[in-house]
């Protein structure tokens, strides 16, 4: 489990309290709490975080502040627009409800990755989030290509188990509106009809 995920689970109540002070609706508190996790976990995958708890709480306060500013701005003209770049998701054309749903699922997916052991987590992140190929992942992790492949494959299985444990059916995720996906979710047929492109077969000796 990642440091941020561990610190998040240990301090979830404190994070909720930060939002609960300013937002009365339980959905808002829940949504923002998940947003904090998503942001901090994403940061953690980029750089090691030395003080995960402080990082989470600071991120939560920043988010509470930027959200409150938005809210105040809508109710009074007296606060100047400071133009903070606090919107990360492409909100165009997506209803608030859909967006909420998307964020919940994003949080669930993030937690699934965060719960993996370190090398599996890095391999899976590079493969699915950074879209690297196995050879690149192998080079970065300094392991063989087949080890990288095993990490990614096992990470997928662990993620599935994690999501099921959290009450998600993998089928549900197909319903996510494509916010920013590079390509539509494929189905099995893609592999059956994909032509017989040449290319050397990848070595797979040590199973």
């Amino acid at each position: 489990m990642s440091k941020i995920f561990g610190a998040f689970l240990n301090n979830e109540t404190a994070i909720r309290r930060i939002f609960a002070r300013y937002f009365r609706r339980e959905e808002d508190v829940e949504d923002l709490t998940q947003e904090v996790f998503i942001k901090c976990f994403a940061a953690e995958m980029k750089t090691e975080i030395l003080e995960p708890k402080a990082f989470l709480l600071r991120s939560a306060k920043n988010l509470a502040f930027s959200e409150m500013k938005k809210k105040v701005r809508t109710t009074t003209d007296s606060i100047e627009d400071s133009g903070g770049s606090d919107v990360y998701m492409d909100e165009a054309g997506i209803s608030a409800e859909t967006q909420l749903d998307t964020r919940r699922k994003l949080a669930a997916l993030s937690q699934a990755i965060a719960s993996l052991p370190p090398n599996y987590r890095r391999a899976f992140w590079m493969r699915k989030i950074e879209d690297l190929k196995l050879a690149q992942i192998a080079a970065r992790l300094d392991v063989s290509v087949s080890t990288a492949k095993k990490h990614v494959a096992e990470a997928l299985l662990m993620c599935e188990a994690h999501l099921r444990k959290q009450g998600y059916e993998p089928g549900e995720f197909g319903a996510i509106p494509a916010v920013k996906s590079g390509r539509p979710n494929g189905d099995g047929a893609v592999y059956a009809i994909a032509g017989c492109g040449g290319g050397a077969s990848e070595s797979d000796s040590d199973a």
Binding site: I38, K39, C40, F41, A42, A43, M45, K46, T47, I49, L50, E51, A54, F55, R58, S59, N62, S85, D86, Y88, M89, T102, K105, L106, L109, S110, I113, K128, I129, E130, D131, L156, L157, C159, E160, L163, P170, G171, F173, G174, I176, A178, V179, K180, S181, G182, R183, N185, G186, D187, G188
Partner: peptide, 30 residues
Amino acid sequence: LLKVWGAFDEAKVLADYAVSDENTELLAKD
């Protein structure tokens, strides 16, 4: 498993979160 694999395509936005200005600032503070 293909559905699970496909679901993580939606998580690609995490890459944008990772390099957001706010996170860069928080990481520097950390």
